[in-house]
Simulated assay, not measured.
Amino acid sequence: MSKIVGYARVSTKEQSLARQIQALSEYVSEDMIIVDKASGKDFNRDGYKSLKCGIGKLIKGDTLYVTSLDRLGRNKEQLKEELRYFQSIGVKVKILDIPSTLNNVEGNEWIFDMVNNIIIEVLTSIAEDERKRIKKRQAEGIASMKIIDGKRIGKKGNAIGRPPKTFPENWVEIYNQWKNKKITATYAMEILNLKRNTFYNLVKKYENKLQ
Rank of each mutant, 00 (worst) to 15 (best):
A143C: 11
N158A: 14
N158M: 14
R152E: 05
P168M: 10
R152Y: 07
K135Q: 14
K132S: 13
A143M: 11
R131P: 02
K156E: 13
I142G: 00
A159V: 15
I160V: 15
D149E: 13
A159M: 10
W171V: 03
Q138Y: 08
G157S: 10
I134E: 06
A127Q: 05
K151P: 03
G154I: 05
S144Q: 12
A139Q: 12
E130W: 00
M145K: 06
T166C: 05
D129S: 14
Q138L: 13
P164H: 14
K156Q: 13
G141E: 02
T166F: 03
W171Y: 07
K155N: 13
G161R: 05
I134P: 03
R162C: 00
A143R: 15
G150Q: 10
E128D: 08
K155D: 11
R152S: 08
F167G: 04
W171A: 04
G157T: 05
I142T: 08
W171I: 02
G141L: 09
K146T: 09
K156D: 15
I147A: 01
G154Q: 00
E169D: 14
N170S: 14
K151F: 12
I160Q: 09
K136H: 12
K136Q: 14
D129K: 15
A159D: 08
T166E: 12
E140P: 00
A143T: 08
I147D: 00
K136M: 12
R131Y: 05
A159C: 14
P163V: 04
G154H: 02
Q138T: 12
R131H: 09
V172M: 10
G161A: 06
I153F: 02
V172W: 04
G161M: 07
G141A: 10
K146Q: 13
E173C: 05
R152M: 09
P164D: 14
P168E: 08
W171R: 01
G157I: 05
K132R: 15
W171F: 13
G150P: 04
P163N: 05
I134G: 01
K132M: 12
V172K: 15
G161C: 07
K132G: 03
S144C: 08
K135G: 01
K151A: 08
M145R: 12
A159I: 13
P168W: 06
P164I: 14
R162I: 04
N170I: 11
K146L: 09
G157M: 11
W171L: 03
E173H: 06
A143Y: 08
R137S: 06
I174Q: 03
